[in-house]
Each structure stands twice: as C-alpha cells, then as structure tokens.
Design a protein around this nucleic acid. Sequence first.
DNA 1: GTCAAATACAAACATTTGTTCGTGTTTGCA
DNA 2: TGCAAACACGAACAAATGTTTGTATTTGAC
Lengths: 198, 198
Amino acid sequence: MRARNTDVESKILEFVNAYIEKNSICPSYREISAGVGLSSTASIHNHVKRLEQEGKLDINGRRGVSTRRHRMSVQQVPVVGQVACGTPILAEENIEEYVPILKGELGTGEFFALRARGDSMIKAGIEDGELVFVRRQDTAEEGDIVVALIDDAATLKRFYKDKRRHKIILRPENDAYDDMEFDDIVIQGKAVKVLKNL
Amino acid sequence: MRARNTDVESKILEFVNAYIEKNSICPSYREISAGVGLSSTASIHNHVKRLEQEGKLDINGRRGVSTRRHRMSVQQVPVVGQVACGTPILAEENIEEYVPILKGELGTGEFFALRARGDSMIKAGIEDGELVFVRRQDTAEEGDIVVALIDDAATLKRFYKDKRRHKIILRPENDAYDDMEFDDIVIQGKAVKVLKNL
DNA sequence: GTCAAATACAAACATTTGTTCGTGTTTGCA
DNA sequence: TGCAAACACGAACAAATGTTTGTATTTGAC
C-alpha cells in the first residue's frame, strides 16, 4: 500500500485559489499542471476529480476548475433612494445604484438595499448612512424590522400589531421618538442585514 | 445606412448577467446564441466584440464571456477563533474558517475577521455573534475600536491613552462594564466593518 | 526483497471553444 | 427603385480543453 499524496493536492488548492484571485478566471488543467510543477494533465485530472468528490473543488466543464469558495457568484442588489410619488419601490427611477454582494450571503428571496437615514433605529444598531439589506415581502411578524413607505420615503421601523384596536404600530428604536400608528400600511420588506462602518 | 441594433446587444447583456448569476460560470458564444434566439455564433461574435470595446463585457478567451461587474473577484478573510497561547493571532491553528467577501469591499490592507463575544461593545452596535472585519495593524488612533489579545482571547475594545499616567485604556462600549487599564498592550488590528444580522 | 497501490508521464482522442469566410437578408436613406 | 451598411446565417477551421489509455516510477507495508 501507499498513503495518499495530500501534498500535491493542497498545492493544487492553493494554486487554484491564487490563480482565481489574480485572474478572476478559472484555471485549466494544463495551467494547474504548470503551476504545481507537474508535466502531465492526467495526474491533475485524478487529483482534481478526487478533490471535487471531497467538495473542495468545482469542475466547470471546459470553463476551468474553481474552488468552491471562489465560484464567481456575485449578485447585484439595487439600492433604493428617494421613492418617487406613487411608484413601486423597486421602480427603475427609484434605484440609485447597485451594490455587489456574494450570492447566498443573504439567503433566499428577492433583496434590495437602502441607506438608513436619521437616528430613529439607533438602538437596533442601525445608524445614519449605513447600508441595510432588505428581503422583499408583503407581510411581517411581530417585532420584525420592516421597510414601509411613509410620505414617499422608505423608512425602517419595528413592526407591531395592536390587535384590540386594529392598529399597526411602527416603533422607532430610539427612546426619543414616539410610536407611529396606522390603520393600514403596505410593507415593502424585512430588514435582514446591516453593513456597519466603524 | 442603417442604425445599429442595440436591441440584440442589450439582450445579450441581460442574458450574460442572468446566466452567470444562475450558473456561476461564464457563457460561451454558442450558449449566448441560443439564449438570445440567434442561430449563428458569428453575429454574436461581432456584438460581443463591440460590447467589449465599449467596456460592457469581458472576453475571457476560452473561459467564456462575462459582464464587467461579475468579474469582481472574491477574497478570503480568515476568521480568528480561540487564540492558542502565545501564538500569533493569524497562525493557522487559530483560524476557524474563511469567509468570502468581495475584493475592495474593505479597502486596502490585510484583513481578518472575528466573531464578537459578549455584550461589551453593544453601544457601538456590535452584538454577540456578529462578524467583525478587522484591518491588521499594530497602532491605533485615540477612539478606534481595536482588537487586542487579553488572556489569549481576541477582544474588541475602544482604545484610549491616558498620557499623564502613561497608561492605555481599553473601554467597553457598555456602561455595565469598567475600563481596563494596561501599561502596555499589543494591538492586533482596527475594526472597520460589522455585518449585523437583524 | 516482493508486491500492490498510488502516482507521474507521454501520447493520443473527441469535443468544445473562439474565429473566419462567403453569402443571403434586412434596413434605411437618397 | 437603387444602394450601401448592418446584420444573420451556415459551414468550416485551428486551437484549446477535458478525457482516456498504456506504461514507467515511486512508495510503503509485508
């Protein structure tokens, strides 16, 4: 018998990583061969195959070999700015820019982002100017931080129901502000992540 | 004369985007052909060539065609867990995992990440379990949130100097905790971003 | 030493890739 | 209508890719 050569395999992983970070493209078998100092693509083929079975690499047909964690998987999240009167929140005219984030970082669903304004959510750790990622949805659970349109501005508030009085409460996370009360309101989404700058 | 057909070209852009977001791989000319409803790769070739000259696409040799914004590559940030006694913070044995982030999202420098523990930084918006991104550096400015090794644990505190008494103050951002005082301390880095889950 | 598994190698293969060429078609202007 | 540019098409091509095969070499247990 003979033990497996994990030495070469870690060299392969390392090379693939470095190659992708440098070129933003997946290397071919022959490039890997040259990179790790072997002169046969067949050997590389075996190693890569095994590394793929172990879940450490992805084989992309004729588009090269990639590390799992390097698969190009960027998605564009629209950043909603001022919401023009009466338009749906995701209408093109309301989108200021797109920020790229990694696919899967937010989970599943449709997402958008907005820049927090003011200090009304400061106790929830959301400060002025910070980027808040929101999952698009019409409903919310008690206590969720939701995005709602108030006076044509997308605002973040915590969501509660007053069941007895059939009112909807939007509560700022700042003791200096009062709750807001509505008979009815259209929820645009639920805030799921914040990117804070320190 | 005849006007240019920007119709097909925007369809191409759209298709390439969708394809990459779905497959995490760059489409080939033939796949684009089928995708936009043309049966000749030659036409696609012309359009893609022009779109590349306009800076809207990247041609990656035999690795397919990609949108500019999808070429943004991913870098791996090590997440530091328990710090083994006496080892440098970025020693392999202290690294729990790697999280992928977009290159350029944190600016320039060397970065690592750690999971915040406890509630000592809650007033700075850093809560238990959240991922904090740290720029590797040995020095800090007054008021920075720094990472320092205290009892072999990487802790986050705000950094101050007591110049008169020649002491270094590490201040928790929580009124329930007291300042910590040191004669000397080794700074590991400065916290720059937090990814908050809501 | 012996043997078997693991690996490396070189060569060859079918397939897919980008690319090119010639031709027919559409479009819009004069 | 006539013309020229833009485009689509189909076929063909060379180059690069993953893959396979057969053989030699290394390695480690018995």
